[in-house]
């Protein structure tokens, strides 16, 4: 585990917060807190369908509960990055940084997203052909070595 994008929620936690959310849903009155806690777990799930559900819940919160906007933006960025919607993720990061340009936590997330895009860009190139594969491998090795220093 190297950064927050690798983190996976435990199934007990996901179920625990899902239960609370559904109970409130049946009573027709979901609190911001319950919806956020459930969404926060969903975007850390290993299943893309869960992550997408989490993103929907966070978008809803973003539009209905202005006090929590920075939290929702942050987890919208994480959720989108985890399903490889990197451009959307960076869009949320940028919206956040417009309000808090020096936020270290969000700047670190931005670096992690860029790192993943770079890494997967190389893999994409490698698939395109054998020669590129060899080149991509060399470049990748170079980057790996350089980043170790």
């Amino acid at each position: 585990m190297e950064d927050v994008l690798d983190e996976i929620v435990s199934s007990e936690d996901l179920q625990k917060f899902e239960r609370v959310f559904h109970e409130q849903l049946h009573q027709g009155n979901v609190s911001h807190k319950a919806q956020f806690e459930y969404a926060w777990c969903l975007v850390r799930s290993k299943y893309p369908t869960d992550i997408r559900k989490g993103i929907l819940l966070l978008k809803e919160l973003f539009n209905s509960h202005p006090e929590g906007k920075r939290d929702y933006l942050f987890y919208l960025a994480i959720g989108n990055a985890r399903i490889k919607e990197y451009n959307k993720a960076l869009h949320y990061v940028k919206s956040f940084l417009e309000i808090e340009p020096a936020n270290q936590q969000v700047l670190a997330l931005e670096r992690q997203i860029n790192k993943r895009m770079e890494k997967e860009g190389l893999i994409g190139m490698a698939v395109a052909g054998g020669a590129v594969l060899a080149l991509g491998g060399l470049v990748g090795l170079g980057i790996a070595l350089a980043s170790k220093k």
Binding site: E2, V4, Y75, E100, Q105
Partner: peptide, 15 residues
């Protein structure tokens, strides 16, 4: 040292 550190969102990770 980060002066004026904003409130952490959820959890932050460092190694």
């Amino acid at each position: 040292f980060m002066a004026d550190c904003p409130h952490t969102i959820g959890v932050e990770f460092g190694t």
